[in-house]
Amino acid sequence: MKVSRRDFLKLSGAAAGSLLLPGGAALAVREAPQFPLRKKVGEVTTICTYCAVGCGQVVATVGGKVVNIEGDPDHPINRGALCSKGAASLQIINNPRRLTKVLYRAPGATDWEEKDWDWALDRIAQRIKETRDAHWISTGESGKPVNRTEAIAFVGGSQNTNEECYLWVKALRAMGLVYIEHQARI
């Protein structure tokens, strides 16, 4: 065994380091430490919110807060696996950048202001009605009824559940919208 000068210095440091410890701690304690689980592994099943493979996830909660999201080991497609996006899901939920208030930006304003839901919903319904009424098309160029408005457009839905998409499409068609599109087109 050959000891170089550099190694010797290292070794000295190592030995000296141990001397700096509080009494007793320097003695190498060899009994195996116990490692309790850092966090819960979940019981609420869900489906990952990224791509359309549809991987199962299990969500663990403590006191109404999500503490862990990992792959659902029983799921026949992903068998517990998740990619980097799926594995990062916890940071979607507990994220300080999430919106927590209704925000409103008045025409020409340079910033958002916080509003309550009732105010915003009333005003949105009012604006839909104004625009729809002002831009209602009863008949087309052929003279046949078309019953639509081309002044309101809607996009979105791929981030939503089937039930949400269904309710939206039902509402939008009842409003007479034809500009209805979503992520599938792009």
Binding site: T161, N162, C165, E181
Partner: peptide, 16 residues
């Protein structure tokens, strides 16, 4: 398909 429910939103036809 790219998004987790782009298939469902297509089946529900949020398309013109």
């Amino acid at each position: 398909r790219g998004l987790h429910n782009v298939q469902g939103s297509t089946d529900m036809c949020l398309l013109f």
